[in-house]
Design a binder for these strands. Structure first.
Lengths: 343, 343
DNA sequence: TTGAAAGCGCTAACAA
DNA sequence: TTGTTAGCGCTTTCAA
């Protein structure tokens, strides 16, 4: 066998064809596991390719096949823990299927372009994954009309394949936990998720939370509702404001763990004991939440990304099911929630 | 002017050439800002391209030019906060320069392949960025011999462009802070960073830390040194073990903030007051560190990634400088460190 | 300053 | 089951 012939220029499909004594078409078919290739031939090609350390030039392959093998992903604020975790899940699955990911920030302009089917975006991709970009049924219909395979993560839709948690239910879980502990003066911190457009997530969570309180005969006053911008500092500011009220809440629900971290910081700064003086509950189950003892509503974020990617691959293969895929939420009780103190 | 002609197939360079009344070669040159194109022609081409919503097909472009416009990035454990932050910085700069990033995990096999100049990796990329992959001068020389532009992040090297913090100095900063507070029984938690190979980061930090203690006449006993695996849980276990000693340390240095979070959790579980009973100091300045009041050594992680990418672009443009680029570290004192209590 | 034309390395009809 | 051949859309000599 000996050493493979070392050459400074990488081997091409022609080199492999010559080495294996077949045509380039056969090499192409053999290496991509096409049917109608004799097993013996396939093996011979494999060996030749191995020997020459051949790898297909993806640019040539994509150009010839007309497939970009690239999925576009749009998300608001790529730097949040939640988003990067979803993206990691999507990428993990797509990479295994040898698809590339083209990531873009979903500001109003990008949104508009995408829904309009703007060439500069759509020409480069085989499919679109939307992460937490609120589209509503109307947007979903436009998306479907584009006839580019698409999957929406974070919202339940009819006209397009979607994956989401039941935000209202998650918020109810949080509300009931606080109610059962005996809280009556309960605050809530949401946000606009850095989007210049409406967003379903805070809306749905707010609705579910309020509904559960109402069912227990509790009204949530204006002053107990703040916008925390879905950031640590936003959560801090929200609590600083709320706790200065003459009659502050004894428990606060923050719609993300990151805001809850800020809330905990604010309480510490004010000399209040989290879980004793004031209860805090978050949403997500961030990796650090366990370490700081934060009670929260867990969503399997990376799994959401993985599932989204798998659904995209299905659509690409023509197995699109146009279904909604619900994801389970669970309450994780830790140390930041407790019975209301007698302050 | 009217509406641009809507067509179902995307415009190609030929369409633009026809529309502008020039050859495809001229379109290609005009759009890529080549010299030797009359300004008036360039403008005409631009308008035509705009009108037809033309975007270059990157696969065709890369195939024809032979440039993959892709940078390979190798890092151990892509999921840690540190790594993903560095990667985000690299990607940010590279994306602006219209380069793609091909990310791989740097296990022993991948390392080996890369250093050997394995075709399946090198053929696809124009350059290599190594993040926290310990190569040492010997590896750096192999890298340089590959004549693929390369940048190493996280280690100071001679034979290849590198960016790193002074780990020993950072650790000294941490040590001195604890010493100045009056601590004498000081622990240290490092780790192997999930690599099956040696790693310079924990080694350098350990050396710097010990040196500073020695200079102050303090010896660090065996039992005060633990491996925390650079994870939250690892940090927790390390402290659980250390604090069970008959004479536990009064302060502990953890080589990452994530380990420090675990340490804080362990102390809370044991009913000890962080910053009072036991002082904790980390390394990184994770986004959550501010919220939990963690004293730490800050490194501007994303900037490291950004700078690395810029240096790569320089090399690609032939402005490689083969220098080491030091990054500044700063001590951030918050609430988890204080004078030793009298337990 | 511009155009003609030959590929880049691969895939996909179509034939055999 | 395999080979022949015509492109995919662009860049880049070379000539003009």
């Amino acid at each position: 066998m000996g050493d493979p012939p070392i050459s400074n220029t990488p081997a091409t499909i022609d080199d492999v064809a010559r080495e294996a004594g077949v045509s380039t078409a056969t090499v192409s078919r053999a290496l991509r596991n096409h049917p109608y290739v004799a097993e013996s031939t396939r093996e011979r090609v494999r060996v030749a390719a191995e020997r020459l350390r051949y790898v297909t030039n993806s640019n040539a392959s994509r150009l010839a096949s007309g497939q970009s093998r690239t999925i576009g992903l749009l998300a608001p604020l790529l730097t949040s823990w939640y988003t990067s975790e979803v993206v990691a899940g999507v990428e993990e699955v797509l990479a295994q299927a040898r698809y590339d990911l083209l990531i873009g920030t979903a500001n109003a302009l990008a949104r508009e372009r995408m829904f309009r089917g703007d060439a500069s975006f759509h020409q480069r991709i085989d499919g679109i994954v939307l992460v937490d970009v609120f589209c509503s049924e109307a947007g979903a219909k436009q998306l479907a009309a584009l006839d580019t395979p698409s999957v929406v993560l974070g919202e339940q839709l009819q006209s397009v394949t979607s994956v989401s948690v039941d935000n209202a239910r998650g918020a109810r879980l949080a509300a009931r936990h606080l109610i059962e502990l005996g809280h009556r003066r309960i605050g809530m911190v949401g946000g606009h998720a850095h989007l210049d457009v409406a967003h379903n997530v805070p809306t749905e969570r707010a609705a579910g939370f309020s509904a559960a309180l109402t069912a227990a005969g509790i009204r949530i006053p204006e002053q107990y509702i703040e916008d925390g911008d879905f950031t640590i500092e936003g959560g801090r500011q929200a609590l600083l404001t709320m706790m200065r009220l003459p009659r502050p809440p004894t428990a606060v629900f923050l719609m993300s763990d990151e805001m809850a971290f800020g809330a905990m910081q604010a309480l510490r700064e004010m000399g209040l004991a989290v879980g004793h003086d004031v209860s805090i509950i978050g949403f997500d189950d961030h990796p650090v939440s366990g370490a700081v003892g934060l009670t929260t509503v867990r969503q399997p974020v990376r799994d959401i990304g993985r599932l989204g990617a798998r659904l995209m691959l299905d659509e690409l293969d023509g197995f699109g099911s146009l279904m909604h895929h619900p994801i389970e939420l669970t309450l994780v009780v830790r140390e930041t929630t407790g019975a209301p103190s007698s302050i």
